[in-house]
């Protein structure tokens, strides 16, 4: 018999910087290693609330200096490092072996650190001063796209989640992420790291439950500007693409192999969620 009765944690959605139950009041029961956990089953309304939170948070996140955003992402890596044991345990609850869980979490932390350092390089790598034929000063610079909807990889673990959400965040977008159905454990653990980093409320919002329920609403939402879709079957991808066409969303699909450490560390992942703005000004007296 155990010496004390442990306090169990309710796994909730992460919206606007707060952990909330689904407005629908619904949950699904998921079997963890040694207990049954009730996970919030996000609804269409939760998607809308999350998008609103992301849209509200966007100007603040976008208008910070790239250096400051980089520092905050680095702070997230710090929080993940200090919560490494918790993250590993959460991955194990989702079924990863001890070794796989460690590798997964280390990959996630290191990728976050890599993107933290990329934040204030993006504009320099992808900006151009264009040699136009005429008396004009002409520059092209990247800007964030806005609110990015992410459908996370299917596989359990935090590395996949980080691969999906960090590039758009690094590009000064705010994110609404639909987590893997299979792994609410490490999802919520990662959200707790995010909540204790200095990431402003609403910059990252994460919904648990069933992606088949929420993803179509996220894809159709008229205030979402782009989608990052992981591990979609052709039929699912077609449905989401069609929904996304309603407001000309930028849709980027990724497969499991895109999570490999080499492919992860790629500035073009961020470019997927950037717009290039070209500004002209006459040069003359």
């Amino acid at each position: 018999m155990t010496s004390r009765i442990e306090v169990r944690k309710t796994l909730k959605l992460y919206i606007a910087g707060a952990f909330v139950r689904s407005e629908s009041g619904r949950t699904i029961s998921v079997q963890a290693k040694d207990e049954t956990v009730n996970v919030a089953l996000a609804s269409r309304k939760d998607v809308r609330d999350a998008v609103r939170a992301a849209r509200t948070a966007w100007p603040n996140w976008r208008d910070r200096s790239a250096y400051n955003r980089g520092q905050i992402l680095y702070r997230l890596a710090e929080m993940m490092e200090s919560r490494r044991a918790q993250l590993i345990e959460a991955c194990r609850a989702a079924g990863l072996t001890a070794r796989a869980a460690e590798k997964d979490v280390d990959e996630a932390i290191d990728a976050t650190c890599w993107y933290a350092g990329l934040s204030d390089k993006i504009e320099q790598i992808f900006s151009t001063k264009n040699p136009v034929s005429g008396p004009h000063f002409n520059v092209s610079t990247p800007e964030s796209t806005g609110v990015v909807g992410v459908v996370a990889p299917l596989a359990s673990g935090v590395a996949g989640l980080i691969a999906a959400v960090i590039p758009p965040l690094c590009g000064a977008n705010t994110v609404v992420c639909i987590a893997s159905d299979a792994d609410p454990f490490s999802t919520v653990a990662l959200c707790e790291s995010a909540a204790t980093s200095d990431l402003p409320a609403g910059v990252l919002n994460v919904l648990t439950g069933r992606r088949s329920v929420t993803a179509p609403h996220l894809a159709a939402h008229m205030d979402v500007n782009a989608l990052g879709l992981w591990d979609c079957e052709p039929a699912e991808r077609k449905e989401l693409d069609i929904a996304a066409s309603a407001n000309v969303k930028r849709v980027h699909g990724y497969k499991a192999e895109d999570r490999s450490a080499a492919l992860m560390r790629n500035p073009y992942r961020v470019v997927d969620f950037l717009e290039i703005k070209t500004t002209w000004h006459p040069a003359g007296l």
């Binding site: 151009t128 264009n130 040699p131 136009v132 034929s133 005429g134 004009h136 002409n138 092209s140 796209t145 500007n225 407001n247 000309v248 930028r250 717009e275 290039i276 703005k277 070209t278 500004t279 002209w280 000004h281 006459p282």
Partner: peptide, 29 residues
């Protein structure tokens, strides 16, 4: 929120200057 901003000028184009939209004006340059 626009892909091309003309400051004190308008409707200037050049092959070296990327052109294209934000939002429902499309994507790609």
């Amino acid at each position: 929120r626009a892909g091309v901003v003309w400051s004190n000028t308008f409707n200037k184009f050049d092959p070296s200057s990327p052109f294209g939209g934000y939002r429902e004006s499309g994507f790609g340059r």
